[in-house]
């Protein structure tokens, strides 16, 4: 059996890279924080006006904001929203882009041509402006925010999957299974998907971070969650006019965004190293 050995090797490679370790630790921490939010932090909406804009203290780890709300609680609860945004957006983009890519790659011809030109169009769109237009049209809300960000992320997956399909089409084993009479879709499911999984996973990991960053940017300019929802981008935005009096209130969520995006980027790097050794050098 060679599998465990490879796995160990992969794991060793993964653990040898300090970046990946930091990335995984941060990601695990983030997930834990999100899961345990109600346990480790208080009510993110609870106001206490007389205690507004207080600096960090034993009582308020990260101080309070302009309504006397606990910044720590808002950041911790915000992690749930950001994580949800990142995962949902990437999920939608993956499924949508994957389907388009699969269709384009397998059917080829005109379908392929049309699908690829559509992705061209989406690439040419300035992402934030497209997302702004969509969020503006649908009205600001968390769901519309996710739709908007997904709309700018899916074409990458379409390209990726299509490329995988094409490269695998050229390989022998697909031909072999065709000879055995397997249908086109079954081939796709059997062979293409598992092989495409590696680059997909890597891309998805980067994208969770990217989606969180884009969503926070939209939230910052007011196209996101409704107040008083503690979405990180929105929190940075609503506390920024107090940055001189209370730098903690806007810095804490900004640093949270930074760490989260960093975690997923490091994780993506690490996954690529482990799963796709050919691409190791690029990083």
């Amino acid at each position: 059996m060679t599998a465990p050995r490879i796995k160990n090797k992969a794991l060793r490679r993964f653990l040898r890279n300090p970046g990946t370790v930091v990335g995984s630790v941060l990601t695990i921490l983030l997930v834990l924080v999100a899961l345990l939010a109600p346990v480790i932090a208080g009510d993110p909406l609870l106001q206490n006006l007389p205690e507004r804009l207080r600096p960090p203290s034993g009582q308020h780890l990260l101080g309070t904001d302009q309504l006397g709300r606990d910044v720590w609680a808002r950041v911790v609860h915000g992690s749930r929203i950001s994580l949800r945004i990142g995962l949902t957006v990437t999920g939608i983009a993956l499924v949508l882009g994957g389907l388009v890519g699969l269709l384009a790659g397998i059917l080829g011809g005109l379908v392929d041509e049309i699908a690829m030109r559509i992705t061209d169009i989406f690439f040419a769109f300035p992402a934030l402006i497209l997302a702004m237009a969509i969020a503006g049209a649908l009205g600001p809300s968390l769901v519309n925010l996710m739709i908007a960000v997904a709309a700018v992320s899916w074409p990458y997956y379409a390209r990726l999957i299509r490329a995988q399909v094409l490269s695998l089409k050229a390989l022998d084993f697909v031909d072999a299974s065709r000879a055995l009479g397997a249908g086109r879709w079954r081939q796709a499911m059997r062979h293409v998907l598992p092989n495409a999984l590696t680059p997909l996973l890597v891309q998805a990991s980067f994208d969770v971070g990217g989606a969180i960053l884009t969503a926070a940017g939209l939230g910052f300019i007011g196209f996101g969650a409704q107040p008083p929802t503690p979405e990180w981008g929105a929190v940075v935005s609503e506390t920024r006019s107090f940055i001189i009096e209370a730098p903690w209130a806007s810095s804490a969520p900004a640093i949270a965004i930074l760490l989260t995006v960093l975690a997923f980027n490091l994780l993506g790097d690490g996954l690529r190293d482990v799963l796709d050794p050919r691409g190791r050098r690029r990083g």
Binding site: A216, G233, V236, I244, S250, A254, L258, V261, L262, L266
Partner: peptide, 22 residues
Amino acid sequence: VRTLALIGGATPVYWLAILALL
């Protein structure tokens, strides 16, 4: 350089802008 590059790629640009201005 790599660390800086990683952080540069993860920092929300608007926050960086506010800090830089400040």
